[in-house]
Design a protein around this nucleic acid. Structure first.
Lengths: 280, 280
DNA sequence: CGTAGCCTTGACCGCCCTCAAATTATGTGG
DNA sequence: CCACATAATTTGAGGGCGGTCAAGGCTACG
């Protein structure tokens, strides 16, 4: 196993740093907090939470979900590295949902006392942990709005924007893309649409030269336009937007699919042209 | 103005008592906390929150809502007496929504320090206040599920069940009904459907002899069946179910609309005309 | 008694679901 | 490296829930 300070497993540190600059002591405290035994889970496994522990996701993607009477799965929240699978605010025992992995994941099980102790020693960390919880609730509210007032294309765009920024916060993106080990079914169950329509919608995003999800890699051809389509304002995530350097790497022509302006959306007709360097 | 211990304004006390039995000192502390100047707002007014204060709803109904790009209002949460319009977890400034009144409301503006002090003196109250926040987040999650996996009839049933139980917690229900000063538009904006379809759905509930909303009064003809239709499990509200005595008063025949199993028959549904038996 | 807002009802239409089949990835053993 | 099996994605056709538009009825209130 790699060392505890390996970038692959410092997701929590990086998440803190997306909101404030950690002092050396603070960073050390967080790192030592996560220096606990880890376990690796395969995709599609379920994660049950022990009472006095906080399960921290270090790598991979997971989700909170419920299964409805009709047997359909609805994903309530995605969990990305640096997220806590369980916390006070979201006790699966009480709220009646489950936690499942969507890819291979690495998980650290922290004792809850460790978190309270670190909070007592470092008030700034305590406040930020609280902010994490607030952002979590705010994200649920945004999903509610997403379901309520956006159609399939806008919903999908919104979710991709959110995931890209959250992954960016923990340093898991390139300039205009990121690894996203999700099946179309996983997206469909979060956006509450059928897999068939999910496929059609991703196809449309691709043809509009906005985004492309292929082979578990998400490419955002035009992030600004995607945000416009989605009506995405990242305020609710509680972070400064795109804190990490995003060099403007223009999308090379060969990687672009053939242009196609499906006339259905006059809103998008002009913006995507050129694929020129988009400053981030 | 009535005295501070008047039942009309002891909503917060009653809400605490739906979760635990208050000692005399605790009850006194809560009552003195809410013994502050109040203001009465007309329906349709907006409520802006001052930074270091907690606005407590004492009577009437309010909501949190946003306005989408298309100008449509979406209600994110209903606020019933005993609810805090603003708290740490839901700072409108950050989250970008507004608070509006749906009926005439009475509001008390508590200093935030008062809440923290009372929490320090009475750990049980502090824990319960925390539980309120958790229940709030859980309710948002339930609304997400409501939108995602239920059709119009089920969604509406679910919302009516929730509102009835929450109002019951603060002693604002009769045996099988409660005052509910909501327009159909207000329900439609929460359930994300058009006012036209809201009308049709309420009509269907009425014909199915499940529930009847008329003249700002909600009658539940068959609460158990309504819960079944909605797939409603009140666990997420974090309360013991129906703590207050609910004497089984059978609905008298004249108040029932003509029976109709499904919407198959466009039978004239004027049967509820005599608003006679309004049990209070 | 008249006006304005709210509710109801009907007609038509579009987004998205379901079913079904073809096509393409992914993984496994030879 | 190829053949095969399985899963995932794509594409088409048809239908239903619920949206929009429009008109009429009911309530409330001055």
């Amino acid at each position: 196993m790699v060392s505890d300070s390996h970038p692959l497993f410092s997701a929590l540190c990086r998440r803190f740093e997306s909101r404030l600059a950690l002092s050396q002591q603070e960073a050390h405290a967080v790192r030592s907090l996560t220096a606990v035994p880890r376990r690796l889970l395969p995709p599609g496994s379920s994660l049950d939470v022990e009472p006095r522990r906080c399960e921290l996701l270090l790598s991979g993607l997971a989700c909170r979900y419920t299964t409805s009477r009709s047997g359909r799965r609805q994903i309530i929240a995605y969990l990305v590295p640096g997220d806590f699978c369980s916390s006070d605010i979201c006790d699966p025992k009480v709220l009646g949902y489950q936690i499942g992995t969507l890819s291979a994941v690495m998980i650290a099980s922290l004792p809850r006392e460790g978190l309270t102790q670190i909070g007592a020693r470092f008030p700034r960390l305590s406040a930020t942990l609280q902010d994490f919880t607030v952002a979590e609730a705010a994200t649920t509210t945004q999903w509610l709005l997403n379901l309520g007032q956006r159609d399939a294309l806008e919903r999908t765009s919104h979710l991709l924007c959110e995931l890209f920024i959250r992954l960016n916060c923990v340093g898991l993106t390139s300039a205009n893309g990121c690894e996203l080990p999700l099946k179309q079914t996983d997206l469909a169950d979060a956006l509450v649409m059928s897999p068939v329509h999910m496929s059609r919608t991703l196809m449309k995003l691709r043809r509009l030269r906005l985004a492309h999800l292929l082979h578990k890699w998400l490419t955002l051809y035009d992030f600004e336009e995607l945000k416009t389509v989605a009506g995405f304002t990242p305020t609710y995530l509680g972070i400064r937007e795109l804190p990490r350097a995003m060099p403007a790497i223009p999308v090379s022509a060969p990687t672009l699919p053939p242009r196609e302006d499906t006339g259905a959306r006059p809103l998008l007709a002009s913006g995507a042209g050129g694929g020129s360097g988009r400053p981030c």
